[in-house]
Structure formats: C-alpha cells, structure tokens
C-alpha cells in the first residue's frame, strides 16, 4: 500500500495538492465531527484520521456517516460510500439532525470566488439575472458555511478567484465583517477558520474578520502571495513557510489515496 522508494528519500516527495490536503488535515482535532465533500476535503480528513486525529468522524451530506470506502469517493453520492458505513440516512439526518443540530465541528468548502471575509460564490459570475457564467448553486455548502463551527476554504490563488467582494454570497463567511454572523443568529465564534490556497494559508483576524497571510508554501514568497491577492493583504507578524507534509502525513496519504488520485487537482491549476 505505501508508496515505494520515494518514501525513503530525505526530501519527502509530495505535490502541491497533497501539501494543501495536509494543511486541511492540521485544522482537524481529534474526535471532531467533519462534513466532507470529495477530493481535498476527503483527503484532508483522512490524513487527519490516519495521523493525529484517529477519533475524527467523517460524514457526507448525502446521508453517510463513517464510511469505509475501498477507493477515494468521486462524489458525495458515490457508490463506494455505501458498503461498510456506520449509518446511512439522507439529507435530513446529516444536514438537519447533525449540522443544523449543532454537532459539526469542521466543514470543508470550495468556490469559484472567495472574498476577504471568507464569503463564497457558487451561484453566478456577473449579474444574477443575466449571468456571465451560471454556476451550480448552493448545494450543501451554504448550510455548512452557516452552521459548522469552523469551515476550511480551499481556493486557487489568483486575482480572479480571490476577490475583495464576491458577486453573490452563496455561502456565508463573515458576511460584511465583525458581528454580522451573530446579528443573523448564527452561532457566536463560528465561521471560516482558514483559506488554503495553492500558494498560502490565510487566517482571519479576530477583530476585523479579514483574511491575512499566515504562511506561504515552499516555492513562493510573501511578496508573490501579496501580489496575487486582490485586496490589501495583511501579513502576520510571525509569517513563515508552510510546514511540508511530515513523514506521518505522507504515510497517511499513501494509505488513503494509494493511486494518488489527488493529482487531478494539478490539472485544475493547483500547482
């Protein structure tokens, strides 16, 4: 199962999507309840589960709790999620009873457009009524963004995907700033925890709720990340290079994704 000679190298062999998945894994604590999608989220959660957070429990919005897939799932409704799961219900069970019920610690989100307050647009680019590009819609992301205690956002780092203000708030981050979530009745302290891009890890300022640069990935620089960010990106005093995947994390990745299917993200620009 584990990946051959590369593992014996001094420099761990990893690709950018794997580093990003590790960054996601590090946001998950032991015994967390995590709603995952496919690709990055599933990978990140599985790395956590096979390393520092063996008690983390994963579920998919379609109705599955603690699946034991024999291959990486290609969708949240994937057939491989069925055999071996601890529980299968439907949307009311996962999104209603568990998410709206207030049990979910971590949810993963991605989007075509993400702004500095961690709001996400998956509805339409341009004017809603005559869209330049019509996107899929809210799906499960919007309720996850509203109701998970912490969300992890995955995005491509360029001046088109990241934006000062999204065209349409499909999934709420900190909406228009401090106190907004609470004003709408969402749980105090909930909201986006981190934006993981192919260049950096951004976190959210406790006071302003604006995303700032926490760490930059190996191969890039603070200057490059700031230049690729369309708002005036603040930089943490302790900004540092993102820690590369550890040996334990790489081992976990090779167990959960032996065929390295996560490579498909390289074709989508995650390099």
């Amino acid at each position: 199962m584990e990946g051959g000679s590369a593992m014996k190298n001094q420099t761990p062999d990893y690709i950018k999507p794997e580093l990003m998945a590790c960054c996601g894994a590090r946001e998950i604590m032991d015994n967390n309840l995590v709603i995952v999608g496919t690709g990055f989220p599933a990978m990140a959660a599985n790395i956590a589960k096979h390393s520092h957070a063996p008690g983390a429990m994963l579920m998919q919005e379609s109705g599955v709790y603690d699946a034991r897939p024999r291959r990486p799932a290609l969708s949240v409704g994937d057939p491989c999620l069925n055999p071996g799961a601890a529980m299968i219900g439907g949307l009311i069970e996962i999104m209603g009873m568990f998410l709206q019920g207030g049990w979910i610690n971590v949810g993963f989100l991605s989007g075509s457009q993400v702004d500095k307050f961690g709001n996400i647009n998956t509805t339409a680019i341009g004017d809603y009524n005559s869209p330049k590009s019509r996107l899929p819609g809210s799906g499960g992301a919007s309720p996850i963004g509203a109701l998970a205690k912490k969300t992890i956002i995955v995005a491509l780092h360029d001046t088109r995907r990241l934006t000062e203000k999204v065209d349409f708030i499909t999934t709420p981050g900190y909406i228009s700033g401090p106190g907004e979530r609470e004003k709408w009745g969402l749980e105090p302290g909930s909201g986006p925890g981190v934006i993981i891009t192919n260049k950096a890890v951004l976190r959210f300022d406790k006071e302003t709720k604006e995303a700032y640069l926490a760490s930059y990935h190996p191969g890039t620089t603070v200057e490059e990340v700031v230049a690729l960010t369309p708002w005036k990106l603040k930089v943490a005093a302790d900004v540092h290079e993102t820690v590369p995947p550890t040996e334990e994390e790489i081992k976990a990745m090779r167990i959960t994704d032996p065929f390295r299917m996560i490579k498909i993200y390289e074709n989508r620009g995650y390099v």
Binding site: Y128, P143, A146, W184, L186
Partner: peptide, 10 residues
C-alpha cells in the same frame, strides 16, 4: 423554520 440561508444573497 431553518437556520441557514441567513446573511446570504439567496
């Protein structure tokens, strides 16, 4: 009643 959609453009 539902607890989501608030604060969004939906």
């Amino acid at each position: 009643p539902v607890k989501d959609m608030v604060g969004t453009d939906l």
